[in-house]
Computed example of a mutant assay.
Amino acid sequence: MSIPPQANQSRKALVLFSGGQDSTACLAWALDRYAEVETIGFDYGQRHRIELDCRQVVRRELAAAFHSWGAKLGDDHLLDLSLLGQISDTALTADRAIEMQANGLPNTFVPGRNLLFLSFAATLAYRRGASVLVGGMCETDYSGYPDCRDNTLKALQVALSLGLDQPMTIETPLMFITKAETWALTEQLGGAALNDLIVEHTHTCYLGERKQRHAWGWGCGTCPACELRARGYVEYKGQA
Protein backbone atom coordinates (compact mmCIF):
# COMPACT_ATOMS: atom_id res chain seq x y z
CA MET A 1 0.00 0.00 0.00
CA SER A 2 3.03 2.26 0.27
CA ILE A 3 3.69 5.14 -2.10
CA PRO A 4 7.26 6.10 -3.15
CA PRO A 5 8.29 9.25 -1.20
CA GLN A 6 9.01 11.25 -4.34
CA ALA A 7 5.43 10.71 -5.55
CA ASN A 8 3.92 12.27 -2.43
CA GLN A 9 4.87 15.88 -3.03
CA SER A 10 1.85 16.72 -5.16
CA ARG A 11 -0.66 14.31 -3.62
CA LYS A 12 -3.45 15.15 -1.25
CA ALA A 13 -4.36 12.90 1.68
CA LEU A 14 -7.44 12.49 3.84
CA VAL A 15 -6.73 11.21 7.35
CA LEU A 16 -9.31 9.30 9.38
CA PHE A 17 -8.91 11.38 12.52
CA SER A 18 -10.64 10.50 15.78
CA GLY A 19 -8.57 12.66 18.12
CA GLY A 20 -6.83 9.63 19.63
CA GLN A 21 -3.17 8.70 19.84
CA ASP A 22 -3.09 6.49 16.75
CA SER A 23 -4.96 8.86 14.46
CA THR A 24 -2.80 11.76 15.66
CA ALA A 25 0.30 9.74 14.84
CA CYS A 26 -1.18 9.13 11.38
CA LEU A 27 -1.99 12.81 10.95
CA ALA A 28 1.58 13.79 11.78
CA TRP A 29 2.88 11.06 9.46
CA ALA A 30 0.70 12.35 6.62
CA LEU A 31 1.60 16.00 7.21
CA ASP A 32 5.26 15.01 7.01
CA ARG A 33 4.71 13.44 3.58
CA TYR A 34 1.92 14.99 1.57
CA ALA A 35 1.39 18.35 -0.07
CA GLU A 36 -2.01 18.86 1.56
CA VAL A 37 -3.84 16.96 4.27
CA GLU A 38 -7.48 17.10 5.33
CA THR A 39 -9.11 15.22 8.18
CA ILE A 40 -12.38 13.36 8.60
CA GLY A 41 -14.12 12.22 11.76
CA PHE A 42 -17.29 10.28 12.47
CA ASP A 43 -20.00 10.72 15.08
CA TYR A 44 -21.54 7.26 15.33
CA GLY A 45 -22.99 7.46 18.82
CA GLN A 46 -19.76 6.30 20.41
CA ARG A 47 -19.72 6.05 24.18
CA HIS A 48 -16.42 7.92 24.24
CA ARG A 49 -17.65 10.75 22.03
CA ILE A 50 -15.58 13.18 24.09
CA GLU A 51 -12.93 12.29 21.50
CA LEU A 52 -14.86 14.48 19.08
CA ASP A 53 -14.17 17.49 21.31
CA CYS A 54 -10.46 16.63 21.35
CA ARG A 55 -10.16 16.57 17.56
CA GLN A 56 -10.20 20.32 17.06
CA VAL A 57 -7.87 20.91 20.01
CA VAL A 58 -5.31 18.49 18.59
CA ARG A 59 -5.54 20.04 15.12
CA ARG A 60 -5.08 23.52 16.57
CA GLU A 61 -2.16 22.51 18.79
CA LEU A 62 -0.43 20.67 15.92
CA ALA A 63 -0.71 23.68 13.62
CA ALA A 64 0.60 26.01 16.33
CA ALA A 65 3.53 23.82 17.36
CA PHE A 66 4.61 22.75 13.86
CA HIS A 67 4.21 25.63 11.44
CA SER A 68 5.29 23.68 8.34
CA TRP A 69 2.59 21.13 9.08
CA GLY A 70 0.06 23.83 9.86
CA ALA A 71 0.59 25.28 6.39
CA LYS A 72 -0.42 21.93 4.86
CA LEU A 73 -3.33 21.17 7.19
CA GLY A 74 -6.57 21.70 5.31
CA ASP A 75 -10.23 21.40 6.19
CA ASP A 76 -11.79 19.08 8.73
CA HIS A 77 -14.98 17.13 8.06
CA LEU A 78 -17.25 15.52 10.66
CA LEU A 79 -19.85 13.07 9.34
CA ASP A 80 -22.99 11.98 11.16
CA LEU A 81 -23.04 8.18 11.16
CA SER A 82 -25.46 7.85 14.06
CA LEU A 83 -27.24 5.06 12.20
CA LEU A 84 -24.22 2.84 12.89
CA GLY A 85 -24.69 3.35 16.62
CA GLN A 86 -28.40 2.64 16.31
CA ILE A 87 -27.86 -0.77 14.73
CA SER A 88 -24.87 -1.73 16.91
CA ASP A 89 -24.99 -3.55 20.22
CA THR A 90 -21.48 -3.06 21.51
CA ALA A 91 -19.60 -1.74 24.52
CA LEU A 92 -18.49 1.24 22.42
CA THR A 93 -22.03 2.34 21.61
CA ALA A 94 -23.88 1.38 24.82
CA ASP A 95 -23.26 1.57 28.56
CA ARG A 96 -22.25 -2.04 29.19
CA ALA A 97 -19.26 -3.89 30.58
CA ILE A 98 -16.35 -4.61 28.27
CA GLU A 99 -15.89 -8.37 27.86
CA MET A 100 -14.98 -11.11 25.41
CA GLN A 101 -17.69 -12.73 23.31
CA ALA A 102 -18.22 -16.35 22.34
CA ASN A 103 -16.81 -15.66 18.86
CA GLY A 104 -13.46 -14.68 20.34
CA LEU A 105 -13.87 -10.95 19.68
CA PRO A 106 -14.27 -8.30 22.40
CA ASN A 107 -17.66 -6.62 22.58
CA THR A 108 -15.94 -3.33 21.74
CA PHE A 109 -15.90 -4.52 18.11
CA VAL A 110 -18.36 -2.45 16.06
CA PRO A 111 -19.11 -4.61 12.98
CA GLY A 112 -18.51 -2.81 9.72
CA ARG A 113 -17.19 0.37 11.34
CA ASN A 114 -13.89 0.68 9.47
CA LEU A 115 -15.48 -0.56 6.24
CA LEU A 116 -18.05 2.24 6.46
CA PHE A 117 -15.52 4.82 7.62
CA LEU A 118 -13.22 4.16 4.67
CA SER A 119 -16.07 4.02 2.17
CA PHE A 120 -17.40 7.39 3.28
CA ALA A 121 -13.86 8.77 3.45
CA ALA A 122 -13.22 7.63 -0.12
CA THR A 123 -16.42 9.30 -1.27
CA LEU A 124 -15.32 12.58 0.31
CA ALA A 125 -11.74 12.19 -0.92
CA TYR A 126 -13.00 11.78 -4.48
CA ARG A 127 -14.88 15.07 -4.23
CA ARG A 128 -12.00 16.87 -2.50
CA GLY A 129 -9.32 15.76 -4.96
CA ALA A 130 -7.50 13.47 -2.53
CA SER A 131 -6.11 10.14 -3.70
CA VAL A 132 -4.77 8.80 -0.39
CA LEU A 133 -6.67 7.68 2.71
CA VAL A 134 -4.65 7.33 5.92
CA GLY A 135 -5.91 5.27 8.87
CA GLY A 136 -4.54 4.05 12.18
CA MET A 137 -5.55 0.42 11.76
CA CYS A 138 -3.06 -2.01 13.27
CA GLU A 139 -2.88 -5.77 13.60
CA THR A 140 0.07 -5.87 16.01
CA ASP A 141 -1.30 -4.12 19.12
CA TYR A 142 -5.04 -4.39 18.62
CA SER A 143 -8.10 -6.17 19.97
CA GLY A 144 -8.52 -8.70 17.20
CA TYR A 145 -10.86 -6.60 15.08
CA PRO A 146 -11.11 -8.19 11.60
CA ASP A 147 -11.58 -4.79 9.93
CA CYS A 148 -8.14 -3.72 11.20
CA ARG A 149 -6.30 -6.48 9.37
CA ASP A 150 -3.98 -5.74 6.47
CA ASN A 151 -5.75 -8.18 4.14
CA THR A 152 -9.09 -6.47 4.80
CA LEU A 153 -7.64 -3.09 3.94
CA LYS A 154 -5.88 -4.34 0.82
CA ALA A 155 -9.15 -5.83 -0.43
CA LEU A 156 -11.01 -2.63 0.35
CA GLN A 157 -8.40 -0.55 -1.47
CA VAL A 158 -9.02 -2.59 -4.61
CA ALA A 159 -12.80 -2.33 -4.26
CA LEU A 160 -12.75 1.42 -3.71
CA SER A 161 -10.40 2.04 -6.62
CA LEU A 162 -12.57 -0.05 -8.92
CA GLY A 163 -15.80 1.49 -7.67
CA LEU A 164 -14.51 5.04 -8.11
CA ASP A 165 -12.75 4.25 -11.38
CA GLN A 166 -9.58 5.89 -10.16
CA PRO A 167 -6.75 4.85 -7.81
CA MET A 168 -7.51 5.30 -4.10
CA THR A 169 -4.58 4.32 -1.89
CA ILE A 170 -5.14 3.26 1.72
CA GLU A 171 -2.07 3.92 3.86
CA THR A 172 -1.79 2.30 7.31
CA PRO A 173 1.53 3.43 8.81
CA LEU A 174 0.86 1.68 12.15
CA MET A 175 -0.21 -1.68 10.72
CA PHE A 176 2.80 -3.71 11.78
CA ILE A 177 4.22 -1.76 14.72
CA THR A 178 3.55 -1.98 18.45
CA LYS A 179 2.18 0.79 20.62
CA ALA A 180 5.69 1.40 21.97
CA GLU A 181 6.90 1.79 18.40
CA THR A 182 4.04 4.22 17.75
CA TRP A 183 5.37 6.45 20.54
CA ALA A 184 8.84 6.14 18.97
CA LEU A 185 7.43 7.03 15.54
CA THR A 186 5.85 10.24 16.79
CA GLU A 187 9.06 11.16 18.57
CA GLN A 188 10.90 10.67 15.29
CA LEU A 189 8.34 12.83 13.47
CA GLY A 190 7.99 15.68 15.95
CA GLY A 191 10.29 15.09 18.89
CA ALA A 192 9.29 15.42 22.52
CA ALA A 193 6.97 18.29 21.61
CA LEU A 194 4.72 15.99 19.58
CA ASN A 195 4.63 13.29 22.24
CA ASP A 196 3.85 15.88 24.91
CA LEU A 197 0.98 17.10 22.72
CA ILE A 198 -0.30 13.53 22.35
CA VAL A 199 -0.15 12.94 26.10
CA GLU A 200 -1.97 16.15 26.95
CA HIS A 201 -4.58 16.55 24.22
CA THR A 202 -5.50 13.25 22.57
CA HIS A 203 -8.17 10.84 23.82
CA THR A 204 -8.11 7.03 23.67
CA CYS A 205 -10.10 5.79 26.70
CA TYR A 206 -13.14 3.70 25.72
CA LEU A 207 -15.11 5.04 28.68
CA GLY A 208 -14.62 8.68 27.74
CA GLU A 209 -12.87 9.41 31.04
CA ARG A 210 -10.83 12.63 31.15
CA LYS A 211 -10.63 13.27 34.89
CA GLN A 212 -7.51 11.23 35.60
CA ARG A 213 -4.16 12.37 34.18
CA HIS A 214 -1.50 9.68 33.85
CA ALA A 215 2.05 9.85 32.52
CA TRP A 216 0.72 8.58 29.18
CA GLY A 217 -2.35 10.82 29.05
CA TRP A 218 -5.96 11.08 30.24
CA GLY A 219 -8.21 8.08 30.82
CA CYS A 220 -9.73 5.62 33.25
CA GLY A 221 -6.53 3.57 33.25
CA THR A 222 -8.33 0.21 33.25
CA CYS A 223 -10.19 -0.22 29.95
CA PRO A 224 -8.38 -2.13 27.16
CA ALA A 225 -7.53 1.07 25.28
CA CYS A 226 -5.97 2.69 28.34
CA GLU A 227 -4.07 -0.47 29.28
CA LEU A 228 -2.65 -0.78 25.77
CA ARG A 229 -1.63 2.88 25.64
CA ALA A 230 -0.08 2.75 29.13
CA ARG A 231 1.84 -0.46 28.45
CA GLY A 232 3.19 0.91 25.19
CA TYR A 233 4.30 4.11 26.91
CA VAL A 234 6.15 2.19 29.62
CA GLU A 235 7.88 0.01 27.01
CA TYR A 236 8.77 3.07 24.94
CA LYS A 237 10.24 4.87 27.95
CA GLY A 238 12.20 1.77 28.87
CA GLN A 239 13.77 1.70 25.45
CA ALA A 240 14.36 5.46 25.18
Rank of each mutant, 00 (worst) to 15 (best):
C148K: 02
L81C: 14
F117M: 09
G112I: 14
R96H: 06
R33E: 04
L162R: 13
A215C: 04
L153N: 03
A71H: 11
A184W: 15
C54V: 11
N8G: 02
G85V: 10
L174N: 02
S88I: 10
N151M: 15
M137Y: 05
L118W: 01
N107G: 11
C54S: 12
S161D: 02
G217E: 05
S18M: 07
G129I: 10
G45H: 08
L153I: 15
C223R: 01
S143K: 04
L153H: 04
W69D: 05
I177V: 10
Q46L: 01
E61M: 04
R96T: 07
A64C: 13
T178Y: 06
L116H: 12
A102K: 12
A94P: 05
V132F: 10
H201F: 12
T108P: 12
D53V: 00
L115N: 03
M175K: 11
G104A: 09
A184R: 03
V234R: 09
L52Q: 05
M175F: 06
L118S: 02
R49S: 13
M1N: 03
C223K: 03
Q21G: 06
Q56V: 03
E209A: 15
T222R: 06
E139A: 03
D80M: 11
K179L: 13
H67G: 12
C205H: 06
A193P: 07
D22G: 09
L81F: 12
F42P: 07
G135E: 06
L31G: 06
T140Y: 14
A193Y: 08
G41E: 09
F66S: 10
I177S: 00
L116W: 14
A122G: 14
H67M: 15
A13H: 03
E171Q: 15
C220E: 07
R33P: 05
P146D: 08
L105E: 11
W218N: 08
A130Y: 03
A94E: 15
F17T: 00
K12N: 13
C138P: 08
H67N: 15
A159F: 04
L116I: 10
A125M: 02
Y145R: 04
K237S: 08
F176Q: 13
W183M: 08
L197R: 00
Y126D: 14
D75Y: 05
Q212Y: 08
K211E: 12
R96M: 02
T169N: 03
S119A: 13
L83H: 13
G191L: 02
A91R: 05
F120I: 07
G74T: 09
T108G: 10
P167G: 09
W216S: 04
L79C: 06
L189A: 11
G20R: 01
V158K: 14
S143D: 08
S2C: 04
L116D: 00
K72A: 10
L189M: 02
